[in-house]
């Protein structure tokens, strides 16, 4: 304890500061340690994974299982499919979803509340059940087992979030700016294109990355709708479920890496997408 009364609040503030740092580091460790461990498991030799207790430090590193995993057939073709599906979903859902989001943010119309509820409830049905009638539909349309089929399914799944997120992004763009543009002679479309869209773009970009990530991670539907044109996670998981544990860990690691990259890319926009900026 200090001798003067005045320093107590400062001491307490210092202590609080310290606790804050410690808590942050604790949470970060909780998030990072599992990632460290799966990397360790993926980069260990198969023999060392059979030992007990497992080494907690990278003493026995090898890329043997990871290489075997990456060298297995179809990984790179599947990566291509994943990118095509992700990009296609992103474009299609933006094309359909952004206008709807704009409408939600700027207009009142009859049936607005039911529409929003409808959006949420469509997410409440398990994908397995949706996929089966869809598979039948796609078979008759002759697009079964193509990337188009997966793009359509993923767009349907991503649309509700795209619409809701872009609505909140547009809400954060002040109406006054748009009105001002109209006053100075812009058409509604011009005001949207020249004023609103540039301001909304960071948020929309974040929403798109979110859509891409959702498409990347969706496995059940993609594996029901395709046979030969699997996306990467679907490919990995269909082949992994019957593989030895070492390969499963390598596969898990291979799926963790892209997610770290995604987050690194979208970090700055992450909070924009929920319409955070000045209201």
């Amino acid at each position: 304890m200090s001798t003067t009364v005045d320093t107590t609040p400062i001491a307490r503030q210092k202590r609080n500061r310290f606790m804050l740092q410690a808590a942050c580091i604790a949470v970060s460790l909780f998030m990072l340690v599992p990632i460290y461990l799966i990397s360790l498991a993926a980069l260990s030799t198969r023999e060392s994974l059979n030992e007990f207790p497992l080494s907690l430090l990278p003493t026995n590193l090898s890329v043997e299982t990871l290489n075997a995993f990456l060298g297995s057939t179809g990984i790179f073709a599947a990566l291509g499919n994943s990118l095509i599906v992700g990009a296609g979903t992103l474009l299609l859902s933006a094309l359909i979803g952004v206008p709807a989001g704009y409408a939600l943010a700027r207009f009142t119309f009859p049936g607005k509340d039911p529409y929003q509820l409808f959006l949420l409830f469509t997410r409440a049905l398990p994908i397995v059940v949706l996929s089966v009638p869809l598979a039948r539909l796609f078979l008759t349309m002759d697009i079964y087992d193509t990337t188009y089929a997966v793009i359509l399914l993923h767009t349907a799944l991503a649309l509700p979030t795209t619409i809701l997120i872009s609505a909140s992004v547009f809400l954060s763009v002040p109406v006054d700016v748009e009105e001002a543009a109209r006053l100075f002679g812009c058409s509604p479309l011009g005001a949207f294109g020249r004023v609103v869209l540039p301001m909304a773009l960071p948020g929309l970009a974040a929403a798109s990355i979110f859509t891409f990530v959702m498409s990347w991670n969706e496995v059940l539907g993609a594996s029901i709708l395709t046979l030969d044109h699997r996306t990467l996670p679907a490919q990995v998981l269909s082949s992994l479920s019957d593989s030895p544990l070492a390969y499963r860990f390598a596969g898990g690691f291979a799926l963790v890496i892209p997610s770290i990259i995604f987050i690194a890319l979208m970090r700055r926009y992450l909070t924009n997408m929920w319409g955070s900026t000045i209201r």
Partner: peptide, 20 residues
């Protein structure tokens, strides 16, 4: 950044992580 990483992780990968 660290706290957001699991956001982009599929549930299947997360299952494998915790299985290890």
């Amino acid at each position: 950044f660290v706290w957001a990483i699991p956001l982009a992780l599929s549930d299947l990968a997360a299952g494998l992580v915790w299985l290890s």
